[in-house]
Write a protein that binds this DNA or RNA. Structure first.
Lengths: 144, 144
DNA sequence: ATTTTTTCGAGTAATATTATAGATTATATA
DNA sequence: TATATAATCTATAATATTACTCGAAAAAAT
C-alpha cells in the first residue's frame, strides 16, 4: 500500500505544478487545499526539497515552488524518497537492495524471480508518469 | 512490501507442491524445512485451508497437503488471502475496494488513475503465475 | 488410554506509520 | 532595528500493522 506520506507528496507536487509561474506557496496553503496535517506536510516537503525537487524560501513572502519542470518529476523518484523501494521484496529492489531474512538461497529463489518481473512492470509505469501527467489525467477525467 | 506471512504462505505451498503424491506433511516439518515460526505458520496454513487450497487431517499421520493442482494455485489468490488487496491504493482495488480517506474527488483523481494501471500490470503477472511456475523457475535457476 | 496433530481464541511484542509540539533560523519590510 | 512571517530542526506521542506466542480443545490413529 502507498503510504499517506507518498500520497500527500504527490498531491503537494501537483498543487505546486499548477502554481508554476506564481510566487512560492506556503506550506499552510498547500495543507489547507489538500487537507493535509500541516506539520506532517512540513516534513514531507523538506524531504522533497533535500532531494532537489523543490525550491524553498524562508520568511515573509516565502514558501515552496517546484525546482523542475513538472514533466521531469516522475512518480518513481517521489516514491523512492517517501516510501523507499518500489519492489515488493527487498531482494528484488534496484535502489534499496538487501537480503530477505527468511531467504535461504537467493540465486535460486522462485519468489524473487517473479517479483523482479512485477517490479519491472511497475517501474515501467512509475518511471514514465510525471506530475505533469497526473495533472493532465485529472483534466482529462473531468471532461469525460 | 510483501509481508512475511505471504512469503511463508508461498514457501509452504511450494513445499507441499513438491510433496504431491506423498502422505500429508506436518506443520512442524514444513516449519523446519523453511525455518518458519511454527505457531505463525499454523495460522497461515489454517487461512489457506479455510480458503480451500489445502486439505488437512488431524491426529497421528495427519498433516497438510494441497487440495488442488499446483498449476491452479495462483499467487494472486494467495496474496489476497494473506495480505489482502493487490492494488497500492484501496480505491484502485478490485476485491478490497474502499475510498481513500484523503481523497476529495475519486472520479477525477489522477493518482488513482495511474495506480489502476499499476494494478493491472501487477495483476497480470500474479494471476498468471502459479505454485507450479515457482517450482519450475527454481529448477530452471539452479540449472543456469 | 495415550499419543499425535490440527484447530481455535486470545493475547502480546516489535516495528512502522502518522501526526504533533516547541524551539530555532532566515528573510522581508516597516 | 524591531516585528512578523515562514521554513527548519529535533524530539516525541499516538495509532496501526505485523509478527509472533500461549494454552487448551478437538479429532484421529494405534
Amino acid at each position: 500500500m502507498l503510504s499517506k506520506k507518498t500520497k500527500y507528496a504527490i498531491k503537494a507536487l501537483v498543487v505546486l505544478g499548477k502554481n508554476m509561474d506564481q510566487p512560492p506557496m506556503q506550506i499552510s496553503k498547500i495543507a489547507e487545499i489538500e487537507r493535509i496535517p500541516k506539520k506532517f506536510l512540513e516534513q514531507i516537503l523538506l524531504d522533497l526539497r533535500n532531494a532537489g525537487f523543490l525550491y524553498s524560501k524562508k520568511g515573509a513572502g516565502g514558501g515552496y515552488s517546484l525546482n523542475r519542470d513538472p514533466k521531469e518529476i516522475f512518480l518513481v523518484s517521489i516514491m523512492r524518497i517517501t516510501d523507499g523501494p518500489i519492489a515488493m521484496v527487498p531482494c528484488a529492489s534496484l535502489n534499496f537492495y538487501h537480503k530477505c531474512d527468511e531467504c535461504h538461497q537467493e540465486s535460486t529463489c522462485g519468489i524473487r524471480d517473479v517479483f523482479v518481473d512485477v517490479r519491472d512492470a511497475t517501474l515501467k509505469i512509475l518511471s514514465e508518469t510525471s506530475i505533469a501527467d497526473i495533472i493532465k489525467r485529472e483534466t482529462t477525467l473531468i471532461s469525460v
